[in-house]
Write a protein that binds this DNA or RNA. Structure first.
Lengths: 199, 199
DNA sequence: ACTACGATGTACGCATCGTTCACATCGCGC
DNA sequence: GCGCGATGTGAACGATGCGTACATCGTAGT
């Protein structure tokens, strides 16, 4: 905590983000108050306003960070997926991320997300583009646009259903099996999709 | 507003629910405060506490009502879907519902949803069972459990992605085409699923 | 007919929150 | 040195969730 002085913090912006992340993981979205963030950063209640216009801006920043981490996490699962199996691995990583960071994942997707935050739209576009590129290499003949949103939707829906306890998330294996099965169900249709694109 | 007296409201419970629904559609989830609900019902700020333990309980009640309406809406789209096309119609209705009642839909799914609310889990179980029954009649040979959660996840994900503006929701036709296409992509795999179940 | 009681609302208070505004304090460029 | 812009402080306002004590009603039992 490189504090430049007793008065000035040094890097309040980053400290707020870190505090916000921690509060999110600890107390859920409800616990994320600007005042609590300020408290945790050891700073007055109004100091964060120097760096974030309002609570929404802070949440957006946290969400954007979450998007970046998600992207890293997916890339970590498999750098260059090019088969349905490898794609399934990435899908499992997506759902795992949601289950490992439930409050963060909800903050990323479960809020109105005013489109004004460019940081946010850029990050989500990156995710979409990433999925698109995977689909392109995995199914060169298919309609990449349509198929990528379809697979994204499938995985995204699985993540939310798991988060809401609608699906069996008791063991990592159960989740893996569920997600892998669902992805394969979709990809067994790839020949049909491919021919449809050629038609 | 059958008010039994100037003092007693008559049916505050129902009035609160109605007010909450209205506030949700008008101001989004953030605008849903117990005090605002009380105000709209023309009653003191703490009166609703007689009927709902806390804010969370009210939201749960609204969400449960939302689940019931969703079920009705789906049934209205097609009473007894038994082909992929008819199932796609129901899927479109699902996404439409989300887009027509964004705040309500988010309240239904985008919150931690403590599993203590039986009203809520019962309602969501009903939805899941409904999907399951459709899948069973549409694909008698398939693994109904696996396939139904897969299709639910697909549609659910599409709904959220549309809600978040990640997909083109500019015209109803675009939404319909998107959802129909995705569902068909999944169902073209049904023979594979069926054989897998038999294996 | 009266009365006691349980259900329903009200009045009031407390802690917290988001946000604003005037002011204090620091570091850096002149 | 020193002045100015960036950064952080403090008090304050209105709104919120929620708890507690009290008021008011319909009604059942006498």
């Amino acid at each position: 905590m490189a504090r430049t002085s007793a008065y000035h913090h040094g890097d309040l912006r980053a400290a707020c983000l870190r505090a916000a992340r921690e509060l999110l993981e600890e107390d859920g979205s409800a616990g994320l108050s600007l005042r609590a963030v300020a408290r945790r950063a050891g700073v007055s209640a109004t100091a964060p306003y120097r760096h974030y216009a309002d609570r929404e801006a802070l949440v957006s920043a946290v969400a954007a960070e979450g998007y970046r981490e998600l992207a890293e996490h997916l890339a970590g699962a498999h750098p260059t997926p090019s088969t349905p199996d490898e794609l399934a691995t990435v899908a499992v990583a997506y759902v795992r991320f949601a289950l490992d960071h439930p409050a963060l994942f909800r903050a990323m997707f479960a809020e109105p997300c005013d489109p004004a935050s460019e940081e946010r739209v850029a990050a989500t576009n990156a995710i979409h583009e990433y999925v698109r590129s995977i689909v392109r290499t995995t199914f060169p003949g298919a309609d990449a646009e349509a198929l990528s949103t379809t697979v994204w939707a499938l995985v995204h829906g699985l993540a939310f259903l798991h988060l809401d306890g609608k699906l069996d998330s008791s063991t990592p294996e159960a989740v893996t099996a569920q997600v892998t099965g669902a992805v394969h169900a979709l990809f067994d249709a790839s020949p049909a999709l491919t021919s449809a694109a050629r038609r």
